Computed example of a mutant assay.
Amino acid sequence: MEFIPQTGAGKRICIVGASGKLGRHMVRHALDRGYEVVGVCREKSVRKLDDYADRITIHPGFTNDRDVVARAVEGCDAVLTVLVPWGVNDYSSGTAKAVIDFAEPDARLIFSCGWHITRDGLDRYSRGLRAAVHFARFMRITRLIDLDDQYRAADLIFRSDTRWTLVRGSDLEEGPSQGLPVWSRHVGDPVLESNLTRRTDFALFMVAAAEDDALVREAPAINGRLTPSALAHAGGAA
């Protein structure tokens, strides 16, 4: 069996959005590393965490519920947050603000989003990605998603004086782990060209970031480490 360093032994980690596909992978990776895990998820989704029910503490509630988040993050050394652009009620930005406001002062705050978020405007997007973002923003008329709210959440994170990292994920696929993804500060860099990461490895990067001070106040864009572009250009990553 592969030895997994117990980097989380004696530490508590909160996963906001624990019942989603990415969240459940983060729960598993955090437990494997010895963390005490606290999860936040909607009450109707608690059953999705049944496999871990006897190993984690669950706070049912919407992830932008400030009271729920305040209770969940108390005493946590790190908080991993999935920013989802659901609805038109500031779900992403409300979640980000609650985590920033209530997390412990020195906690590592790791947030997830997609490549569409940019920190400095130097990212170079393909025509296809630009079209997908335009369509997603248009879909606000359905009141199901609000991509602009994810931009507002990112702005809150970038302006905060916390020990944050905003992990920007590529397209995702299922499958066994290929290891920790490669990353770059800017979408458009050759190492990211393949634009594909295993979901479990996105989660692995989120958990690993909690222990990596080199990622404090960075917005790494990630890509699977065994993709063609990563294998060809990994030496120039980050």
Rank of each mutant, 00 (worst) to 15 (best):
A103G: 07
R199D: 06
G188R: 02
R127I: 12
P181Q: 02
A237D: 08
D106A: 13
G188Q: 03
F205V: 08
Q178A: 14
G179E: 07
I222Q: 02
C14M: 10
G75F: 09
T95I: 07
L196R: 12
D90A: 14
A209E: 01
T162S: 13
N223C: 14
S92I: 00
A78L: 07
C76W: 01
N64E: 12
I4C: 09
R137T: 12
L122E: 15
A18H: 00
R24Y: 00
D51G: 12
S126I: 05
D50L: 11
P85H: 08
I141C: 12
G34N: 07
R152F: 01
R28W: 05
T197G: 07
T227A: 06
N64Y: 15
R130I: 09
S170G: 05
I100P: 03
L180P: 01
R137K: 15
F3V: 11
R66T: 14
D213H: 11
S92G: 04
W86K: 14
D120R: 04
L147E: 13
A230L: 05
I56W: 04
D213M: 10
L166V: 00
Q150V: 11
A30N: 07
E173S: 11
A132M: 12
K21F: 03
R28F: 08
E193R: 14
V216Q: 03
A107M: 08
P5H: 05
F138S: 10
G179D: 08
V82R: 08
G169P: 01
G94M: 02
W164N: 02
G235R: 13
A234T: 10
A238G: 14
V182R: 06
D51K: 15
G34E: 09
A136K: 12
W183E: 02
P181L: 01
S126K: 06
T165M: 08
G61V: 10
I222L: 12
Y35E: 10
L180I: 13
A153Y: 00
L49G: 06
P85T: 06
V27P: 04
E211F: 15
F102P: 00
E211Y: 11
Y125K: 05
S177R: 05
A234I: 09
S92T: 02
L180Y: 04
L147Y: 15
P181I: 03
R108L: 10
V167A: 06
A103C: 10
T81D: 06
R124I: 14
M1K: 13
L31F: 08
F158E: 03
R108M: 12
K11D: 02
N89M: 13
D161C: 05
A210M: 05
T162W: 01
E104D: 14
S184G: 06
T95R: 08
H186N: 11
R217Q: 12
I56P: 00
H59G: 05
L80N: 04
Q150H: 07
A72I: 07
L83A: 08
T142I: 07
L109N: 03
A210F: 01
D171N: 14
A153F: 00
R47S: 14
S92V: 00
P176A: 12
G236W: 11
R71D: 13
P60T: 06
D213T: 11
R140C: 11
H186Q: 09
D201M: 06
S126A: 12
L196H: 07
G23A: 06
